[in-house]
C-alpha cells in the first residue's frame, strides 16, 4: 500500500514538473516525499493577482484514499482561509475528496477558491463578515495582504491607495474609525481587534452604536 502511495506521489511530482502550462509547482521540503510545498500564482482579476501562494502539503498514510492535508503557508485574506493558521475550508479536502484527485488538481481547486469565495461556509468568520458587508473594503484589504505577504507587486496597490498599507488597512478598517477610539486613550492594537470583531466597516458602522464598541473595549 505504502509502495503504491510512494509511486503515485513520485509520479505526481514528476508530472507536475513536466507541465509548464499550469504554473503550479510541487516541491519536496527535504527527503520526505510525503511532506511537500505546493505553490501557485494568485488568479488574475482578483485581489490576489500577482501574489505567489505557498501551500503546506501533508500526504496521509492512506493517500489517495484519504484526502491530502493542505494549508496555506502564505497569509491569505479570504473567507474560506483562516487568516491566522492558513487552514482551508474546501469540500474536496474533506467529504468530497476522490482518490482520482491529484495534488495538482487540488492546488488548482485552491486557486479557483481564491476566485470564488464561499462566504456562507467560512473558515474565518471575521473575514467572511467583511466580505459580505463591504466588498470593496474586503478587496482592498485582500490586496494589502497580497502585497504584504504574497509578494504582489506594490505598484498596483499603490495606484489604488497611494501610500503603503497601515495596520488599519491590513485589518480592513478605516483609519478615521480607528483614530476616533485611540483618541479616547485605548491602545491602537486593542481598538483594531475589537473593531475587526464587530465588523466595524462600510455601512455596518452606522449600525453599530459607539457604546457597543466601548463596552467591548472595556472588557
Amino acid at each position: 500500500m505504502s509502495d503504491a502511495r510512494l509511486r503515485r506521489v513520485q509520479k505526481e511530482i514528476r508530472d507536475c514538473a513536466k507541465d509548464k502550462t499550469s504554473n503550479i509547482s510541487i516541491d519536496m521540503i527535504d527527503e520526505n516525499p510525503f511532506h511537500l510545498i505546493g505553490a501557485f500564482p494568485g488568479p488574475p482579476d482578483t485581489p490576489y493577482e500577482g501574489g505567489y501562494y505557498e501551500v503546506d502539503i501533508v500526504i496521509p498514510d492512506a493517500y489517495p484514499f484519504q484526502p491530502v492535508k493542505m494549508k496555506f503557508i502564505t497569509k491569505v485574506y479570504h473567507p474560506n482561509v483562516s487568516s491566522a493558521s492558513g487552514a482551508i475550508c474546501l469540500d474536496i479536502l474533506k467529504d468530497a475528496w476522490s482518490p482520482v484527485l491529484t495534488l495538482k488538481s487540488t492546488l488548482i481547486s485552491l486557486q479557483s477558491l481564491l476566485c470564488e469565495p464561499v462566504p456562507n461556509d467560512p473558515q474565518d468568520a471575521e473575514v467572511a463578515k467583511h466580505y459580505l458587508a463591504d466588498r470593496a473594503g474586503f478587496n482592498a484589504t485582500a490586496k494589502h495582504w497580497a502585497q504584504a505577504y504574497a509578494q504582489a507587486p506594490a505598484s498596483k496597490v499603490k495606484a489604488t491607495h497611494g501610500k503603503p498599507a497601515t495596520d488599519a488597512d491590513m485589518a480592513g478598517l478605516a483609519e478615521e474609525n480607528v483614530v476616533s477610539f485611540t483618541d479616547m486613550g485605548f491602545p491602537r492594537e486593542k481598538v483594531i481587534s475589537v473593531l475587526k470583531k464587530l465588523n466595524y466597516r462600510g455601512n455596518n458602522v452606522s449600525n453599530i452604536h459607539e457604546s457597543t464598541v466601548l463596552e467591548e473595549l472595556f472588557k
Binding site: F65, D91, D95, A96, W97, S98, P99, V100, L101
Partner: peptide
C-alpha cells in the same frame, strides 16, 4: 458511502 465509484463526478453527485 465510499464503497462506490471513486471518480470525482460520482463522488460529487453522491455528496
Amino acid at each position: 458511502e465510499n464503497v462506490a465509484c471513486p471518480s470525482v463526478d460520482c463522488v460529487k453527485q453522491r455528496a
